[in-house]
C-alpha cells in the first residue's frame, strides 16, 4: 500500500514540467525514506535525479519498496488537471498496475481522482559517486535560465569557465560570439539573489545549450541553482526543493575541439 499526500501539490506539477521533455518513461521509486527517480535521456548524455523526502509529505505511507514505471507525458497530462492550490495524493495498492492521483481543492469542495496505467520499464541505474568539485557556483535560477536562453539564440554550445574573476558563460555561432561574466555578489538584499562562487581550481567545460535550456525548466522549483563543475566529471545542475529534496541534472561535457 502506497499513499503519499502532498499539500503543496503544485510542487509535483512543477517537477513534471521540469523533467518531462528530457525523459519519456521513468521508474518512480518509493521507499520508507522518500519518493525518488533516476532517469537518463534517450541519448545517455543527461540524467535527472529527483528526491522528495518523506518528511515533506503531510501523510507518507509506503509499506514496501516499490518501483512504479510511468510515462512522464501521460503523468503530466494528469497532473495538469490539478489546480495549483490543490492537495495531491498518490495512491497505489500492492501489485496493482495502476496509480491513482487524487486532487483536493483547498476548501475540500472538489475532489477528483485520476487513475493512470503503470508500465514495465527496465530498471537501470547509474552509480553516481560522491565527488569533490573544482568549482561550485550558486546563483539566482532565473538569471541562469536567462543566460542559457540568450546564448542559445547565438550558438549551440556554452563554455562555462570559473576563474577567480567569476563565472563566464560563452558561446559562438554563425552570427558572432557572446560572453556573459557573473561575478561573486553577496551584497544583496535577499540571500537568494546572491551569486556565490567557491573555487578550488579554475575549470572550463563545454556543454550543449539544448540540455541546459531543458534543465532551466526547473526554475519555478527554486530561487537558486547550484552548478558544480569538475574537469573530470559531468556538470551537476541542482535545484533544491525547499524542505523536501532536490532535482539534479547531470550533463556530460563536449570534448574540446
Amino acid at each position: 500500500m502506497l499513499e503519499l499526500r502532498l499539500v503543496q501539490g503544485s510542487l509535483l506539477k512543477k517537477v513534471l514540467e521540469a523533467i518531462k521533455d528530457l525523459v519519456n518513461d521513468a521508474n518512480f521509486d518509493c521507499s520508507a525514506t522518500g519518493f525518488s527517480l533516476q532517469a537518463m535521456d534517450s541519448s545517455h548524455v543527461a540524467l535527472v535525479a529527483l528526491l522528495l523526502r518523506n518528511e515533506g509529505f503531510e501523510h507518507y505511507r509506503c509499506d514496501r519498496n516499490i518501483s512504479m514505471g510511468m510515462n512522464l507525458g501521460n503523468m503530466n497530462k494528469m497532473l495538469k488537471c490539478a489546480g495549483n492550490d490543490d492537495i495531491i495524493t498518490l495512491k497505489a495498492d500492492d501489485g496493482s498496475d495502476t496509480v491513482t492521483f487524487m486532487f483536493e481543492s483547498p476548501n475540500q469542495d472538489k475532489i477528483a481522482d485520476f487513475e493512470m496505467k503503470l508500465m514495465d520499464i527496465d530498471s537501470e541505474h547509474l552509480g553516481i559517486p560522491e565527488a569533490e568539485y573544482h568549482a561550485i557556483v550558486r546563483m539566482p535560477s532565473a538569471e541562469f535560465a536567462r543566460i542559457c536562453k540568450d546564448l542559445s539564440s547565438i550558438g549551440d554550445t556554452v563554455v562555462i569557465s570559473v576563474t577567480k574573476e567569476g563565472v563566464k558563460f560563452s558561446t559562438k555561432g554563425d552570427i558572432g560570439t557572446a560572453n556573459i561574466v557573473c561575478r561573486q555578489n553577496t551584497t544583496v538584499d535577499k540571500p537568494e539573489e546572491a551569486t556565490v562562487i567557491e573555487m578550488k581550481e579554475p575549470v572550463s567545460l563545454t556543454f550543449a545549450l539544448r540540455y541546459m535550456n531543458s534543465f532551466a525548466k526547473a526554475t519555478p522549483l527554486s530561487h537558486t541553482v547550484t552548478i558544480s563543475l569538475s574537469s573530470e566529471l559531468p556538470v551537476v545542475v541542482e535545484y533544491k526543493i525547499e524542505d523536501m529534496g532536490y532535482v539534479r541534472f547531470y550533463l556530460a561535457p563536449k570534448i574540446e575541439e
Binding site: 545517455h44 548524455v45 543527461a46 547509474l126 566529471l233 559531468p234 570534448i255
Partner: peptide, 14 residues
Amino acid sequence: AENQKSLTAYFDWY
C-alpha cells in the same frame, strides 16, 4: 554529435 561524451563514460551501471 561525435564530440559529445556519454554519461556512461563517467558512471557505472548497477
